[in-house]
């Protein structure tokens, strides 16, 4: 907690003071009036939102497909190990993999050119928001698999059979039982995914070398690029703003969880 709290404190403290230690909101108003910072925020939010939704949907689907198979089978082992690797480790390596695939000379780019589709003339680049989102989804799906699997495992087969014996079709079982039961876990996991993508930086750093404006890039630039004096504190202010966004996410998460507690033990 100290190791988490102390840096956070120093960020917050730094953001609200001048170099002389006087209380100020100057740093925040700087970020709000900077077009670059604001578009970085917009980009970060967009990418968080899209990759969270994509990752959550596809991840749940994948996890369900895996669980429907042979428990302890090869597929389950491979998917669970691969999920661990991709979700927790792969930031930098996967960026390279994407460059190799969809970079200007990437395998897929070249292949598509052969069949007459030129991605890059169509305005696509791997170092774009779309490219980044594509790469982020690559670790968002595995993270979703990890987060949602316990909830899917918690669906008892008796519920489906009981519903059937009471006359429910597969669809009405899903509608009335499975989906309501899964919703809290699903929404919770989606929020985590959002937070994860919103704050991820490693992949972007390796993929674009920092050319795409997302908030972490701006912070890094403010801290390390010694262009203008006082930039440091603007970076810290951006950090505080990120924390605020994340705090909202966490509040949402808690609200979902406590709503579910009505019928969850």
């Amino acid at each position: 907690m100290i190791f988490l709290g102390l840096p956070l404190y120093s960020v917050i403290h730094g953001a609200f003071t001048t170099d002389g230690g006087v209380l100020t909101f100057q740093n925040f108003s700087t970020t709000f009036s900077s077009a670059a910072d604001m578009s970085a925020f917009k980009n970060s939010l967009l990418i968080g939102l899209w990759t969270a939704l994509l990752g959550a949907g596809l991840g749940t689907w994948l996890a369900a497909a895996v669980l429907a198979g042979n428990p302890g089978g090869l597929v389950q082992r491979v998917v669970s190990s691969a999920s661990g690797v991709l979700a927790y480790f792969a930031g930098v390596p996967l960026a390279f993999a994407w460059i190799a695939t969809l970079g200007s000379t990437g395998v897929a780019t070249v292949l598509l050119q052969h069949i007459g589709i030129n991605l890059y003339s169509g305005g696509f680049t791997i170092a774009s928001l779309t490219g980044l989102a594509l790469a982020y989804t690559y670790f968002q799906i595995p993270l979703m698999v990890i987060l949602i699997t316990p909830a899917l495992e918690g669906l008892r087969p008796q519920w489906e059979e009981a519903a059937q014996s009471l006359g429910a079709s597969k669809l009405s079982y899903m509608r009335h039982v499975a989906i309501p039961v899964l919703t809290p876990a699903f929404v919770g996991a989606t929020l985590i995914l959002f937070g994860n993508a919103f704050s991820a930086y490693a992949t972007a750093l390796a993929l674009t070398g920092g050319t795409i404006a997302i908030v972490p890039t701006q912070i890094n630039e403010a801290l390390n690029g010694n262009v203008i004096a006082n930039q440091d504190r603007v970076g810290l202010a951006l950090g505080v703003e990120m924390i605020v966004v994340v705090a909202f996410v966490m509040i949402g998460y808690w609200m979902v969880q406590s709503r579910a507690r009505r019928w969850l033990q």
Partner: peptide, 8 residues
């Protein structure tokens, strides 16, 4: 454990 947990 066959009761639907999300319904009263």
């Amino acid at each position: 454990y066959s009761l639907f947990p999300n319904m009263n």
